[in-house]
Nucleic acid binder design. Structure first.
Lengths: 207, 207
DNA sequence: CTATGTGAATTTATTCACAGCA
DNA sequence: TGCTGTGAATAAATTCACATAG
């Protein structure tokens, strides 16, 4: 294996592989070939092998990959091998869905705090965390929470992002349907749950 | 303008442009240059111009783009110019968030039906629709609903997808965290609300 | 003089084809 | 023989640079 810059597209696919592998582990499987992974995850076999080739040699020719080994390697590459705390801002419909979603835990995230503006929601216990006032967001730095999930109405998103940046948050998962501006050192990933539906009609043959 | 195949990446960005333009309209703006769009939406100006160049000439040199004209054009390209019905399957946390989300309407979608397995939820009215039993999914064909949103637990997703395919659904927005297999004629877009958080730590500098 | 639209250059990503290992 | 790992070939997307239009 020689030096390689890792393509962004590869990084985008790694969590997908991880998700599939965790499911296979649950199902009691131990080994898998790139071909079978391909069928299971909807990615080409050669794409999978190429992606892995950027990091080292994980597989055995003639046999395939050991699922638990591969899982650990991918977690390490993605820096998911240690539990990371994350804060949720906005406990509305979408925010509540985030709190109830089992997936975050699977990738090593611990949603350790939740914030709201609505006074009627502040103080409520959701799962095992107590909803706090957004004015407490500044405490994130002290509490060493470096990741945040924004699930507030569109018009509040930029303002919340600004506060998060001040609180030294390094990464933001933004569910508000808008572009938010942050310093380059902060990484934002935006998910607009409606926007992907908007390209389905384009791909559907008979209008 | 000459013949061009439209890159998938361009199709992926079009809804993003549309979202921004709709927001600008709300704010009362009428004209915009590619440069200002770039700042507002987080995409390069030349990328925007290149993307539009695949479809025709929308702008005026020296002036920019008329926002309402551009909005209409993009809607037409994405086939969002007519209202499309969509069905929701699964009215749990995430499904409820989908029903409450204003974004779908903005892109011309009308979530016209919702389905559940849980008998306690069936018959309830959410907004202006009544939650139906999943066994009614077959009626989608008759009702001319061709798009569906899956928001059920992972282990039920493939099964629901199979039923949707039988009901002649053409496009599926899948919120379940798994790969689902459908015939080639059906387009699936999967959103796993946790999976994108999983690549944030990779991009964050100080571990 | 400003901002578009687009070929051409460059960069990035995918696919192929196969050497080599278990 | 079966499957990995990877250079080389191909394809796709981005970026540049500028002719051209208002």
């Amino acid at each position: 294996m020689r030096y390689h810059r890792i393509p962004d597209e590869t990084v985008r696919r790694l969590p997908l592989y991880l998700r599939g592998l965790l499911l296979l582990l649950e199902q009691g499987q131990h080994n898998i070939s790139s071909r079978d992974m391909a069928d299971f995850m909807g990615v080409n076999a050669w794409q999978i092998r190429k992606d892995f080739s950027y990091f080292g040699e994980f597989g055995k020719p003639g046999v395939g990959y050991k699922i638990d080994r591969l899982t650990k390697e991918i977690k390490k590459i993605l820096k998911l091998h240690i539990v990371r705390k994350a804060a949720l801002v906005g406990v509305g419909n979408l925010g509540s869905a985030v709190l109830a979603y089992p997936g975050f835990r699977a990738y090593g995230f611990d949603i350790a705090a939740a914030f709201e503006v609505n006074p009627r929601k502040i103080g409520r216990k959701v799962g095992n965390i107590v909803v706090e006032d957004v004015s407490n967001l500044q405490t994130l730095k002290k509490r060493k929470i470096r990741l945040a999930i924004i699930a507030v109405p569109r018009d509040a998103a930029q303002c919340i992002a600004d506060v998060l940046v001040k609180a030294d948050v390094k990464g933001i998962l933004n569910f508000s349907p808008c572009y938010i501006v942050v310093p380059k050192r902060v990484k934002v990933i935006t998910i607009d749950i409606a926007i992907d539906l908007a390209r389905l009609p384009y791909y559907i043959s008979a209008c």
